[in-house]
Design a protein around this nucleic acid. Structure first.
Length: 226
DNA sequence: ATCCCGAGGG
DNA sequence: CCCTCTGGAT
């Protein structure tokens, strides 16, 4: 089997490259992680972590979000982008948690995706990092790299989650997601993958499709905390 | 200019 | 499938 290569070997190599790969959002409860993850949509961890301390202090529980003043909430989350949609989502989440989940964040995929602003990707982040429920996170990076690695040809999140899930045991899914996503953000970019500073030569079917001169590739690496 | 660990709506 | 929503970093 030439195409998929050895998934375990790729995961191991990424584990050596990113030994500290984890969720970069700051949170101390499932609700905080849920809120931070909703704010992360098309944003960055740095910008989210910059606003969450004040946000969490102002809105300590679901009821606080449900009763929030829209303008005040929008002002607090403005730097994360898409603030109007996100503010509406957070207020809707607060109301939904109070009405249907006794004020607590539900710990199942089926329940989480019924919340406004929460899709499959956001739900899996919350499940994997706040509830220790095994789950893959098929975001844009994960899908792109799963395609490049030859693990699956489809670009649809459901198909990617299914196919990759069969290549790895559930206990690996959360860590695998973080490693693959970190690699997508730091080296294996959409437009110019930095193959020259990637350890997957001989393992990745797409190796060499980006700059392979180490000096050039090094200029493309995005360091952490961005 | 281009991208960001997306989601909702048409 | 398409489109829109947003500010910030590079």
């Amino acid at each position: 089997m030439a195409g998929p290569g050895q998934p375990q070997a790729i995961d191991a190599a990424l584990g050596e490259l990113y030994p500290d790969a984890d969720c970069e959002l700051d949170f101390t409860s499932p609700l905080e992680l849920l809120v931070a993850t909703v704010l992360s949509a098309q944003s960055t961890d740095r910008r989210v972590n910059a606003v969450t301390p004040a946000l969490f202090a102002r809105y300590p529980d679901a009821a606080a979000y449900a009763g929030a003043d829209v303008a005040e909430l929008e002002a607090l989350i403005t730097p994360t982008g898409f603030f109007r949609a996100k503010a509406g989502h957070l207020i809707g989440i607060g109301a939904a948690l109070d009405e249907r989940f006794d004020g607590a964040v539900p710990g199942t995929l089926a329940d989480l995706v019924t919340l406004p602003g929460v899709g499959r990707k956001t739900a899996n982040v919350v499940l994997g990092n706040a509830f220790d429920v095994p789950g893959l996170t098929p975001d844009t990076h994960f899908i792109r790299l799963a395609n490049r690695f030859g693990w699956v040809a489809s670009t649809k999140p459901d198909a990617v989650e299914q196919a990759v899930g069969e290549l790895f045991p559930p206990e690996d899914w959360v860590q695998l997601s973080h490693r693959v996503i970190w690699h997508g953000r730091r080296r294996c970019h959409a437009r110019r993958p930095a193959c020259g500073v990637c350890p997957l030569e001989g393992l990745c079917p797409s190796y060499g499709e980006g700059p392979t001169d180490p000096a050039v590739a090094a200029t493309l690496v995005r360091e952490p905390r961005g």
